[in-house]
């Protein structure tokens, strides 16, 4: 387990934010146990034992592992109750998060076992200054496993965009320097096998590579 110089506070992840996934699950949302579609962003923490870095090896889990990648917003100053209009002015820079989890069967209860395994949240490789990214909504996150593209998520495909999420989340919890938000993962998390090499990239921004323990 290694520490990560980028995230030192809290790492907030947004689930169920891929519009294609939401459309697909629409009927399910009205059934038990959900009974109604979410009206608010569906959030979870990746706690400090999960933080990891570019190049890190991810421990294998006998229950299997799936991966998703997300554009990640890093804060350089306190952000409390901001509006969507002003939200991006609090962003220090952009990077990537790999969320390695156990296969997810339900969104009903917090998934501590699935989401909080040691070292399963690499963040990096670098933080690109916000001033170098004209419009985060125009970015696309591409994930390759062993060189083959397995996921492609344009940020514009997210149900809630970067600025709206920062505004909503900063109205729940004050964000501090060293906090980060992973704004959305592809709905279909990709299963990985032992020894797989996972590389995600945002063209012109950064690239993050991790290998699953052989």
């Amino acid at each position: 387990m290694s520490t990560n110089p980028i995230v030192t506070g809290k790492l907030v992840c947004v689930a169920l934010n891929d519009q294609q996934q939401l459309d697909k699950l629409d009927a399910t949302f009205n059934e038990a146990p959900y009974k109604a579609a979410p009206t608010q962003p569906v959030l979870y923490f990746k706690p400090h034992n999960t933080w990891n870095t570019d190049g890190a090896t991810i421990a294998w889990n006998e229950e299997g592992l799936v991966v998703g990648a997300s554009l990640t917003v890093v804060f350089g100053k306190e952000c409390c109750r901001t509006s969507a209009e002003e939200a991006l002015s609090y962003v220090e820079g952009y990077t990537l998060t790999h969320d390695f989890s156990l296969p997810e069967k339900s969104y009903y209860r917090p998934d501590i076992k699935g989401k909080c395994q040691d070292g399963t949240a690499p963040v990096g490789a670098v933080v690109v200054p916000a001033s170098d990214v004209a419009d985060p909504q125009a970015l696309t996150v591409v994930t390759q496993v062993n060189g083959e593209t397995v996921g492609e998520l344009p940020v514009s495909q997210l149900h809630r965009g970067v600025a709206e999420l920062i505004s909503i989340i900063s109205n729940i919890m004050t964000l501090q320097p060293g906090d980060a938000i992973a704004v959305g993962f592809p709905g279909d998390r990709h299963p990985v096998k032992q020894g797989d090499k996972v590389t995600s990239s945002i063209a012109g921004v950064t690239e993050l590579t991790n290998q699953v323990e052989a």
Binding site: A15, P38, R109, I172
Partner: peptide, 17 residues
């Protein structure tokens, strides 16, 4: 009031400042 059936109890219910 903020309970929803996703990762319940959700962060908005339990993790506000």
């Amino acid at each position: 009031d903020y309970l929803e059936n996703y990762y319940r109890p959700n962060l908005r219910v339990k993790s506000r400042d």
